[in-house]
């Protein structure tokens, strides 16, 4: 068991845990947009910056990819932390002025209208979609493309990723809701990636419930599940 303090309160952590997770588990409020406990921490959004003192050195660092270490002191609300966080929020708001979660953060931290030219991209490049697709789903249908100010997320050739199974995990983890999933009677479309897939009808109730690709893929990667399991919708299973 590792012991350290957050804002003066002693907390306990398991080996391998990160500071952000421990803080969240103990009820500390640290804003974060690119972190998800099921995924590898990435440290891209920079919102979860805190001040950490280790030995005689104190520095500003992201808490999501900082390991819980014995004896460190974490400060989540110092003047420096707030100043850094506010600028990150202003930069994100300027990039994505229409995203509710960012607008809420701006309000919470009293960040007014950004002093920069406003963009209109709802994607903040947190990389959650890319990580869930690679780490959890395992199909790597999308990835980051480009570099620097030209960076974006998308499929190879930027449209219709051939390995995408249409599971919608990317849309589920997206913090800004910029990946939309549309369904009609027979098809599911992941709008942002330009991927449309036919859906399977439930053997029992006849309702289209998931893309064929997704069910085939799940059938392949899971073991010990009866083959007709994937023929029925979750409600009829």
């Amino acid at each position: 068991m590792i012991k350290f303090t957050i804002d003066g309160v002693e907390v306990e952590a398991e080996e391998g845990q990160n500071v952000l997770q421990v803080a969240l588990d103990n009820g500390f409020d640290i804003p974060h947009l690119c972190y998800h406990e099921a995924l590898e921490p990435y440290g891209a959004c920079r919102l979860c910056q805190v001040e950490i003192t280790k030995g005689n050195r104190t520095r500003l660092t992201t808490s999501c990819n900082y390991p819980a270490l014995e004896g460190i002191q974490v400060q989540t609300g110092t003047e420096k932390v707030i100043k850094a966080r506010k600028m990150v929020i202003e930069l994100l708001l300027a990039r994505s002025p229409n995203v509710p979660v960012i607008k809420d953060l701006a309000e919470e931290y009293s960040v007014g209208t950004p002093r920069f030219t406003l963009g209109d991209d709802d994607c903040i490049l947190c990389g959650l979609c890319e990580r869930v697709c690679r780490e959890i789903v395992g199909v790597e249908a999308i990835s980051f493309l480009g570099r620097g100010s030209d960076r974006k997320v998308g499929p190879p050739l930027e449209i219709n990723p051939q390995t995408c199974i249409g599971c919608g995990a990317c849309a589920y983890v997206c913090p800004t809701d910029c990946i939309k999933v549309e369904e009609n009677e027979n098809e599911r479309t992941i709008v942002r990636w330009g991927r449309t897939l036919p859906m399977k009808k439930c053997k029992v109730c006849g309702r289209s419930f998931a893309p064929w690709f997704q069910l085939d893929y799940f059938g392949k990667i899971t073991e010990g599940i009866p083959s007709d399991f994937w023929d029925k919708c979750p409600d009829c299973r």
Binding site: Y42, G43, A44, C45, R46, L47, M87, V88, L91, L92, A94, R95, F116, T117, I124, L125, G127, F144, G146, R147, G148, S149, D150, R151
Partner: peptide
């Protein structure tokens, strides 16, 4: 140079160098 050479991962570096360039 830097806004193009930043890997683009950190919001601060990616957006920050871009905004500094714009100013």
């Amino acid at each position: 140079f830097l806004r193009g050479e930043s890997c683009g991962k950190c919001t601060t570096c990616r957006e920050g160098t871009q905004r500094m360039y714009e100013i």
